[in-house]
């Protein structure tokens, strides 16, 4: 008995320092941000008097924040979709036991080793649109021009695609009381796709690596058994491989999802808030309003909003995986 209790004391003692540090520097500061978000702190001098949830009400009524939420949704959906499609595609190709697989794997993974700042600066140069009307071309537009393809304004394009209220669909939405859907608030900012391209370039290799690990984890016997039963290659993937890759997809969605909700560095390096906030995101707004505008309470509200939205994504996953571990 004595030995077990010694071990227990020892393990508690060893965990204690990091537990204390995490309690203060993670949860303590989360609590502090939460408090600030409910205070009247506007201006450089801290003012922690109680303001209640008015900060949040004001935040959601701010046009810039509404645009930011729209941008985050557009970014997250397109970034995740592209990463999963490209990552899975590359993984399946590499899984065909090609020669020089190691080389390709490293090649596709390399972008992940770079920081988002470097990616952002590089893609900012590559996608710099120049001024085609004045015959001044830069970056990828030179290539597109050489191939006689239409040029893009990339991240300087202020266009927001949305359902026109005068169109048939827009009129229909108006009649059923969903007219608000036919406004730019529910549109798609074209400039955001430049950010999506850069982010996908960086992260799809990582997704590939995860799927490749998943593919290698599927026993060959299962595929063989399916083939013996007369399944063609597509059916093998459709009924055997893809269902077995579902846990991987879930992990990918969680990992990329929380990156895309919190994205800051890439946007800050590449286009900042963009033309008419076309590439603005909550984290960038938070940075500007807190440290340039001195609106500390508003900045803290955005921080808490980001925390909650990431938690909504991560906590169900944690619960799910802990339960599964408990079952095993």
């Amino acid at each position: 008995m004595r030995h077990i209790s010694w071990d227990r004391i020892f393990s508690i003692l060893v965990i204690l320092p990091s537990a204390l540090a995490i309690a203060v520097f993670v949860y303590g500061f989360i609590g502090w941000s939460g408090w600030v978000s409910l205070s009247n702190w506007d201006g450089l001098r801290p003012d922690l008097s109680w303001a209640g949830f008015g900060n949040y009400a004001k935040l959601f009524a701010t046009p810039r924040f509404q645009i930011d939420i729209r941008n985050t949704v557009v970014f997250t959906v397109s970034f995740l979709t592209l990463c999963i499609l490209i990552g899975l595609g590359l993984a399946i190709l590499l899984d065909q036991r090609v020669r020089g697989e190691n080389l390709f794997r490293a090649l596709f993974l390399f972008p992940m080793a770079i920081s988002f700042i470097v990616t952002g600066v590089t893609w900012r140069w590559l996608l710099a649109p120049g001024d085609p009307a004045a015959g001044r071309l830069t970056g990828i537009n030179v290539l597109l021009d050489g191939l006689n393809l239409p040029l893009s304004r990339w991240y300087t394009d202020p266009t927001v695609l949305y359902i026109q209220p005068t169109s048939e669909l827009g009129q229909f939405l108006g009649r059923v009381g969903l007219g608000f859907l036919a406004t730019p608030t529910f549109g798609i900012p074209v400039a955001m796709f430049s950010i999506v391209i850069a982010a996908t370039w960086q992260m799809s290799g990582y997704v590939m690596a995860m799927y490749l690990a998943g593919l290698r984890g599927i026993p060959d016997e299962l595929r063989e058994a399916a083939r013996v039963d007369g399944a063609d290659e597509w059916q093998v993937y459709r009924h055997i491989v893809f269902p077995l890759l579902r846990p991987i997809t879930l992990s990918v969605v969680i990992i990329l999802g929380h990156i895309s909700l919190k994205i800051f560095d890439l946007v800050a390096a590449m286009s900042k808030k963009g033309p008419g906030f076309a590439t603005d995101v909550p984290a960038y707004f938070m940075f500007e309003t807190t440290f340039q505008g001195d609106h500390y309470a508003q900045g803290a509200s955005i921080a808490i909003f980001l925390l909650i939205s990431v938690s909504l994504l991560v906590i169900p996953y944690l619960v799910y995986s802990t339960r599964r571990e408990a079952e095993l």
Partner: peptide, 16 residues
């Protein structure tokens, strides 16, 4: 600075 930040936000939209 807080005023300038607000004006910058107005300008960001106006330029577009």
């Amino acid at each position: 600075e807080s005023w300038v930040t607000l004006i910058n936000d107005v300008m960001t939209v106006f330029v577009t």
